[in-house]
Design a protein around this nucleic acid. Structure first.
Lengths: 156, 156
DNA sequence: CACTCATTGTGCGTATACGCACGAAATTTG
DNA sequence: CAAATTTCGTGCGTATACGCACAATGAGTG
């Protein structure tokens, strides 16, 4: 069976199914599935620049900005000035953001459970490992360069 | 290890990596990754309504319409009147659409290969099976009802 | 210190993604 | 057959997703 021909469509189907279910489950709390990912990246007390946030989600810096504007209006995140770099901003969760995230996390519990409902613990482990491999194989090496530089670990 | 907590983010990362790489690879041919999925669903000679196309991608009917408008302007698909149902339209690939799809398929070959580069054939099989299970677990049952009805298989 | 270059965030344009409401046409029901 | 219901495609509004160009600022170099 031609795995590499089916895998892209399957990955797309699985992700969209997850995204739609999550959107539906979180809608009553006024947060989208993508906003949830952003809040989770900041949870519980991480402070980072918009660029770093975009790298970790991962998402586009331009997209992250648009999301932050909305989330700031809703009072869930704060964008303070960064004392070390006047270009950058220090993004973090507000108290309301932390409270809301807890509700969102609970609201998504059923979906996470349903996702692995037909998988044994062993199969779940395997899926995580195989998906990690695929994600790394597809990852654009340009982002790795930034990470390596920020860690500052010169090769001896 | 808490599989169900890592799986959603991992699925998102893997899908986005695939989508970005595909978009970049197909950009020089003037087609997006999502348009490629639509063309692939129609390839080579399928004729279907917009609704059926949306169900198979899977995608939203409203989104599919917007994509079809663009693809029709580019001469890749045709939306003819459906003789059996004057509400519906018969969507199919044009000759240019079929030629373009072949080029797109070839342009994406490297990505599909890279995706499974670090996987054995057995692991690829396993990944397809596990992802299918997850996708089915998350699938909204409302779409299944439509499929069952369209097949016309009444329970005795 | 002046110059060059890289980085941060912003603004704009295009393409999805999806919900919702609408008119038109088909199907079901009484 | 007429009325209620369902289905198809459309149009509108909001939220991503990403590329690109831009100004301001920080970093490295001579």
């Amino acid at each position: 069976m031609v795995v590499q021909e089916r895998l892209p469509r399957l990955l797309r189907s699985a992700y969209f199914a997850l995204h739609r279910q999550t959107d539906a489950a979180l809608a009553k709390l006024g947060v989208t599935a993508d906003q949830f990912v952003l809040l989770a990246t900041l949870h519980p007390n991480h402070v980072m620049t918009q660029r770093e946030l975009a790298d970790r989600m991962p998402s586009d810096p331009s997209t992250v900005r648009a999301m932050l504007v909305l989330l700031e209006e809703h009072g869930l995140v704060s964008r303070a000035a960064n004392p070390n770099d006047s270009r950058a901003k220090a993004v973090s969760l507000t108290a309301k953001g932390k409270r809301t995230f807890q509700k969102l996390w609970n609201a998504g519990e059923q979906i996470r459970a349903r996702m692995v409902a037909h998988l044994s613990p062993q199969e779940g482990q395997t899926l995580v490992q195989l998906l990690s491999s695929v994600a790394e194989s597809l990852d654009d090496p340009s982002s790795k360069l930034r990470k390596a530089k920020s860690h500052g670990c010169p090769v001896p």
